[in-house]
């Protein structure tokens, strides 16, 4: 029963990375779009693409938090207590990113738009970095089960934490560039699509290199994870690499809709590979699922809520994405 909850949780975290992550990545491209004049069209495209969807995509984060604290309360308390520094940074990053984005949309003066835009873009880079760093801390087993026993700095300021942070920023910006290609082309902005395509290729290659180098880092820093990633999880890792290469080819031939699927699957494979690599330990090297899971009396109604909620959620999300994956005036399938 705890396994069922974990599947829902991991599906939710995957959705957060694929959708919410791409919204963060779009912020990075906003940051490097150039001067106010030269970057204006890119920024408009980014704002147009993430505007209607970012709030919904953001809810996956809250979803993940509440599922963990209900189903695996001791793991939640341990993670939050030890990783208070990076996770407080994440919380502030979330606040800055969302509010600055909304503020920028609501003002017209160039100076104010620049200010809010900078806050939005910077926090879009900082937030995934700290989330990734927290992930690295968990994966390398540096979050002790006992609350108050962890080191609030050295738990994440280490090779695995930095690797997690860099990979997270890379994956987010890669996904964003890939998704934006099709958005730009559909709006008839082929020159922008070309720009995003170049960035997607560059980021895809970079993330691939960092991931490979990362395996060497894990060999030193997180032996259990390394052993399982090169053992039981190896097929998933190969699948991810193959999908990543296929995405580069699809980008080269400008198959922008198909590459969305392969890029998303490549990232999904990384996430599920990590899950397999860590299984059944919730905190990297310790606290197995059986120890941490809430009693069945809690899990049973939780699964009912998750199943019912998903049945409501999926059609609503499809409606949202369907509506804004077309330009105004197109036939809307509502």
């Amino acid at each position: 029963m705890a396994q069922t909850v974990l599947v829902f949780l991991w599906a939710g975290i995957t959705a957060y990375v694929l959708f919410g992550g791409a919204d963060f990545g779009a912020g990075l491209w906003d940051l490097v779009a150039g001067g106010a004049e030269s970057g204006a069209r890119q920024r408009a495209r980014i704002e147009h693409s993430i505007g209607p969807v970012w709030e919904a995509n953001h809810v996956w984060l809250i979803f993940a938090l509440v599922v963990v604290w209900t189903a695996f309360p001791s793991a939640f308390a341990a993670i939050m207590a030890t990783l208070s520094v990076p996770l407080t940074a994440v919380a502030f990053g979330v606040i800055l990113r969302g509010s600055a984005f909304a503020f920028r949309k609501s003002v017209t003066e160039p100076a104010l738009r620049r200010l809010f835009g900078a806050a939005f873009a910077l926090s879009s880079v900082v937030t995934p970095f700290f989330l990734g760093a927290a992930t690295g801390a968990i994966a390398s087993g540096r979050v002790p089960t006992r609350v108050g026993a962890g080191d609030v700095l050295r738990s994440w300021l280490n090779p695995s934490g930095v690797l997690g942070g860099v990979l997270a920023v890379g994956v987010c910006s890669y996904l964003a560039a890939v998704y934006l290609c099709a958005d730009a082309r559909r709006a008839g902005e082929d020159d922008l699509a070309e720009g995003f395509r170049r960035r997607a290729v560059l980021m895809g290659a970079l993330v691939g290199v960092v991931a490979l180098a990362g395996i060497a880092v894990l060999h030193q820093d997180a032996p259990r994870l390394f052993g399982r990633l090169t053992g039981v999880a190896l097929p998933v890792i190969f699948a991810s690499a193959a999908l990543g290469l296929a995405s580069l080819v699809l980008l080269a031939v400008r198959r922008y809709v198909a590459v969305r699927v392969t890029a998303a699957l490549a990232v999904t494979a990384v996430l599920w590979g990590w899950a397999v690599g860590q299984y059944p330990m919730l905190l990297g090297t310790h606290l197995d699922i059986g120890e941490a899971a809430a009693p069945e009396a809690v899990l049973r109604p939780l699964i009912a809520v998750l199943a019912g909620g998903t049945a409501l959620l999926v059609p609503s999300l499809l409606l949202l994405y369907g509506m804004f994956q077309s330009e105004p005036g197109d036939e809307v399938a509502v």
Partner: peptide
């Protein structure tokens, strides 16, 4: 935790 999960949806 259950009402929080419901609130999430």
């Amino acid at each position: 935790g259950l009402p929080f999960a419901l609130e999430g949806f």
